[in-house]
Computed example of a mutant assay.
Amino acid sequence: MGGARPQDPVRPLVSRSWSRVLGFGLDPTHANARDPLPRAEVERRRQASPLALVVDEVRSVLTSVADASRFIVVVTDADGIILWREGSAGVLRTADRLGFCEGATWTEDHVGTNAIGTALAEQAPVQLFSAEHFEEGQHPWYCTASPVHDPRTGALLGVVDVSGPALTLHPALVALVGTAARLAEAALWRHHEQALRRVRRSAEHVLATTSGPLLLVDDDGWVAHHCGVLVRDRVAAPRADRPVSVPGLGLCLPERVGEGWLVRPGASGSSLRARLHEVAGDTVLDVTGSDGASWRVTLTPRHATVLRALAAATPHGRTAADLSRDLFGDDEHRVTVRAEVSRLRRVVGALVATAPYRLADGVTLVDGS
């Protein structure tokens, strides 16, 4: 950017980011497009973000020293969109001129190398100083960012960032921002435990009169209560019209109870008969439980082919290589097969078991095409 090699080598982190950004075609001499979202969309994203539960705790750690230290605190979602921002009034005004405002997207493909976007790309804490930023307009800044993950699933939820004038950078900020991110994750886990307690309270009247074995789970399949079965942290997310397969319980059809789901063996989950046939040009799967409960799903032709292959397999099931040969005539498409089976299981639930791939115990498939 300066027309000559720097005296000191560029850090590998920065070099990787610059290479990515150059591939996006961004111009380092101009402010690239910010295009902040409308206020209503920012508010919608705030309400939908799990970080809304813990943003006050992040503020309590960081903003108490923001004015004295001349920095601002920023929290984004997993898309790199700034949802919350506060801190030193003077730094906020400078940030506004830079487009570093609520609703703006600060990913690398929008604004070049910056701590938020690079932390999202690297999935790791990042600190950038002055000319390590790609855009020249960001050179007067430092920024320190740390990703925040869902402690239950590991999913990326967003980024906590501290930014300010480059000459005010304090060496303790990396540790401070990292601490704020870890406290946010710990607080999210506490909220998760509180939610499971609410699920248990809402189902107390049923649990008091129901004998095991059973599980009580939340909408995401996290276990709030167990009885008569080896406890697990989580099962497949329950739905009223989809069976789940649970080690020790077998094939079960979840029942809505209070704020959670009761998962237990019984007549409704002991056996399922699935019929594959054509209806008005679509391939549909009609599923009937042994108690008469039934539901219908529409399948893609590929998913119907996978089900037929599994129905024709031996009790030992099919490996990814086996299914690759069934579908493509060779065993070179194993990655594609795994993706297809994963998508199929999101549609038909536990009718399909894995390791190896097969119809679950208690499932009978009839091909009526």
Rank of each mutant, 00 (worst) to 15 (best):
F328H: 15
A304Y: 06
S270C: 10
P254T: 00
V335E: 13
R264T: 04
H277I: 01
V223G: 04
G248V: 02
C227W: 02
V244C: 07
G228A: 06
R325A: 13
T314H: 12
V297S: 03
P247H: 11
A311R: 14
R308P: 04
V284D: 01
V284N: 02
A320H: 00
E259A: 14
D326G: 06
L285P: 01
R334P: 00
R273L: 04
R318W: 04
S294N: 13
V263W: 07
R242P: 07
R273I: 11
C252V: 03
R242M: 14
T298D: 09
D233Q: 14
S268M: 07
A240F: 05
R256Q: 14
W295I: 01
G269P: 05
A237R: 12
D233I: 01
H226P: 01
H226D: 12
E278K: 06
H225S: 10
V335F: 10
S324R: 02
G269Q: 04
P265G: 14
S324P: 02
G258K: 03
L307C: 05
V229M: 10
P238W: 13
L310E: 03
R264P: 03
R308K: 14
R273V: 15
S290W: 00
G260E: 07
A311S: 11
T298S: 13
A267G: 12
F328T: 14
E278H: 09
V287Q: 02
R296T: 09
P254H: 10
E255G: 02
A321Q: 06
A237E: 13
